[in-house]
Design a protein around this nucleic acid. Sequence first.
DNA 1: CCAAAACCTGGAAGCGCTCCCAACCGCTAT
DNA 2: ATAGCGGTTGGGAGCGCTTCCAGGTTTTGG
Lengths: 364, 364
Amino acid sequence: MGALPGFGWRIGYLVWFLLDWGRLVSDLTLEDIAKKAGVSRSTVSRVVNDHPNVREDVRERVKEVIQSTGYQPHAAARSLASQHSWMVGLVLPRNVSSFFTDPYFPRLTQGIAQACNQHNYTLSLFLIGTKEDEEKIYPRVSRKGLLDGVLLQSDQIGDQLADQLIRSNIPLVIIGRPFSNKNVSYIDVDNTNSAFIAVSHLIRLGYKRIGTITGVPTRTVSLDRQEGYIKALIERGRDIDESLIVEGDFTEAGGYYAMQRMLPHKPDAVFAGSDTMALGAMRAVRETGLRVPEDIAFVGFDDLPLATLPEPRLTTMRQPVYQFGIKAVEILLDVIENGITPPRRVIMETELIIRDSCGASRRR
Amino acid sequence: MGALPGFGWRIGYLVWFLLDWGRLVSDLTLEDIAKKAGVSRSTVSRVVNDHPNVREDVRERVKEVIQSTGYQPHAAARSLASQHSWMVGLVLPRNVSSFFTDPYFPRLTQGIAQACNQHNYTLSLFLIGTKEDEEKIYPRVSRKGLLDGVLLQSDQIGDQLADQLIRSNIPLVIIGRPFSNKNVSYIDVDNTNSAFIAVSHLIRLGYKRIGTITGVPTRTVSLDRQEGYIKALIERGRDIDESLIVEGDFTEAGGYYAMQRMLPHKPDAVFAGSDTMALGAMRAVRETGLRVPEDIAFVGFDDLPLATLPEPRLTTMRQPVYQFGIKAVEILLDVIENGITPPRRVIMETELIIRDSCGASRRR
DNA sequence: CCAAAACCTGGAAGCGCTCCCAACCGCTAT
DNA sequence: ATAGCGGTTGGGAGCGCTTCCAGGTTTTGG
């Protein structure tokens, strides 16, 4: 360039020309629209943002220009000037390896995405895959000027990210019951009580040796459901047989192996901490030649679509997962738009769906 | 305010003070860092962006200040100035109602998210839920200054969004084979050939009446796999029996009902267009008292984790779904960073995984 | 030892928008 | 006629960053 200043200048001019041409074709700015409509930048901005105090005919005229040019405000510029990005983040933790195994997360994500669409927010997805991701996640999520708020699936014990986000003061809603009962908004079902109901149902049907397959012990959801199981037994004066409490990991395979471990202890009914595990467990039962529910009855948790498919159809606690997502977004947006309020706790309703696997129809 | 100008002024002052205090605590700007480090804004910017041409001791000093203050550049400001957002969008279409039924999409999403993490891009997720979403999606995705590029799952026939995005000139990679063979980059497996191989495998095992359960006919993936099925039969001089070609919809239930329709026509083997459908179909077979693979053999497509679980374990075409996601991101970033190049087509390898459901071990 | 080249640094002009403020308009009420 | 009042409008100062450019400093080679 230095050697050919004239040439460099020409190149520069050409580039300018191309850029400018590009701008005219598709990258119009507020200023351009203003010029075309014969008003000022401010007025166009008011029209775009539906402010009152614009004369009706002016508003029409500007809207027409916007229509005909296909003008769209520049997202980054708007974010910078307004300090508001209209984006929320969804963070799903690492040990949700079940992300693609258990339909729970896709379903949740769908609800969240749906609500974001409705409210015209953009959803960013942060899936933590590796250990390194986990270390870099906080700066990424909390980066200034990126997100207006974050949804965090977190019922892990000792979740550092949750702590960091709480301290960072970014609007936050946690999905699931956080382990240390901090000053956060969260949304969950009453897992303990739901499990209580499920197990009580089995007791009422007359089963004597009721086992449970729990989730990973590092999540409150597992703990809570196990607690509900124990409470239900104790309330009816039953003893707790530790050999009937086995650990799964919320996967089909986990349920399968857990059941294999439980079988020698002769359960006559099982409360599984998730439908996916129930399915695995029933497979294990079937393989030994025993029948569900005649020999071993089952109650699951979630009410996934696939719970209704196999024979016998699964009796299960229905969680409104999709509504979960919707509601979580609504709470978050409320916090974003109306400022920090006392933390909300929303507990959503569950419902026992009685089908075949619990043997209810057979026993009465 | 007008009535109490003095008060208004004081409020203003207070607000200024609070804002400024907030800034000092957590919302530092480049300028602040520059001041603290005794250099100019430009120099700090260079350090942050790893530009060369900064003296080593200066770089160190600035980095220290950044470390100790926890400074983070403002995402929106950076995007505005650099015309680069470091965000990519993933758009999943509406008729992927199977999003939460078929683990394919979660798995794909995971791969994509993983790659985004690796390259320090932020992923935005656009799930199209309703008809209205579909209408509003294009402006949302193409909004200026929001995304650097988009990944679109699109093998739907007549996908308008694909057309619009192609015309918009935003860097784009399509996941799946687009129906009208446009000038786009896309990534897919060779569905036709893969199906050909799967069906040839059944033929080789000696089955005479081989049926197929197809996906929805509005997606190229269904068409391609069906075509492979037909080609394989024709190549071996078999007749095509239309009653053995039934339509599913990529869901378990769809496979189940499809199989019920096919059963009266006495197939002795079935190639299912997806593992999920194969599972449903095998359930239908089991219910009639027939056995897999003794009475009817099965080959699926996808190699989902759950394909290995039930007895008999499913013989299937393995697709590298996760790698799909990774690769798609890599192509997209290449387009983003190196400008428009001739469209890339990447066809990924599949692999026939022989297990029990095809009866291979039994027949030889 | 000096000129040229290479390297470093700060200033300033944006990126495209929001929003405050002052000015202006056409009325009504005095 | 004129002050006063909403409603409406344009100008301008940012938002926090990147990047070009010019000037200053150091290094290099003859």
